[in-house]
Design a protein around this nucleic acid. Structure first.
Lengths: 131, 131
DNA sequence: ATGTGTGCAAAATCTTTGCAGGTTG
DNA sequence: CAACCTGCAAAGATTTTGCACACAT
């Protein structure tokens, strides 16, 4: 159960922090590889899980798959359903509701994730042009 | 672009509505197969996408993959990070924030998804017992 | 020392797609 | 009949895992 500090784990954490555009697992892998040719995909996946588990990073599920993000309680995500881009936005306050999950249903350690999904301005233009 | 009403599409829609425990694509497939042996996985996946696109059903992304749900604007989801169960809960009001996404960033057709994640009572007991 | 973590590659999942033929409106 | 849609199976994409060795504590 002890958590060790390996170079690879640090590289994965750094990669997620450096890439602040919500990278996919594979993008993290590629970034890590820039620093060290020998790190394997398996290691990156394993460490992403460990880091999410420990709360050092956050996993964001959107259409198109799983993305990772540096920890930050106070933002939500705004994703474009056309191009898949993910944008940080201020989080709405759902603290009351969150507490209610713990109180009313007895869940522990409840975390909140708010995702807004729509069509970004660029993609609106694009689909207009296509018409 | 015309939308046709095929037996298979109806079966998929019915399956999602019948299974009200937020089925995975594969669970929908299995359910459909109970009614008709010959429907293929490809067809189920294709129709799930079509139905999400048209708003007849909703896709819920949680740890562990994509789930589907009958349309229902006024609920959020409470998922257990241990067993993966998904529960419907009343949605917190984030309408102001949602509108702000459209106003401030120019996104169109913005939809909201709120997901709470924690450990359900049953899983809390389990991990206590394991100690 | 000891048990975590790693690299590698294979395996397991899960989802998409090409194609030939069937169906809907 | 002209789109659409389907079944099948193969291909793609993504993630997990077994194993032997390496390394942090």
């Amino acid at each position: 159960m002890e958590r060790r500090n390996t170079r690879q784990r640090q590289l994965v954490l750094d990669a997620v922090r450096d890439l602040d555009d919500h990278p996919t697992a594979d993008e993290v892998y590629l970034r890590v590889r820039e620093k060290d040719e020998h790190v394997s995909r398996g290691t990156v996946y394993r460490n992403l899980h460990v880091l999410v588990e420990s709360g050092d990073i956050v996993s964001v599920k959107v259409s198109g798959g799983e993305r990772f993000d540096r920890r930050s309680d106070n933002h939500a995500h705004l994703v474009c359903t056309e191009c898949g881009s993910v944008k940080d936005v201020p989080a709405p306050d759902v603290e009351d509701a969150r507490r209610e999950m713990e109180r009313a249903w007895g869940y522990a350690d409840v975390r909140t994730s708010t995702v807004f999904a729509g069509v970004c301005p660029a993609c609106q233009k694009k689909s207009q042009a296509a018409r």
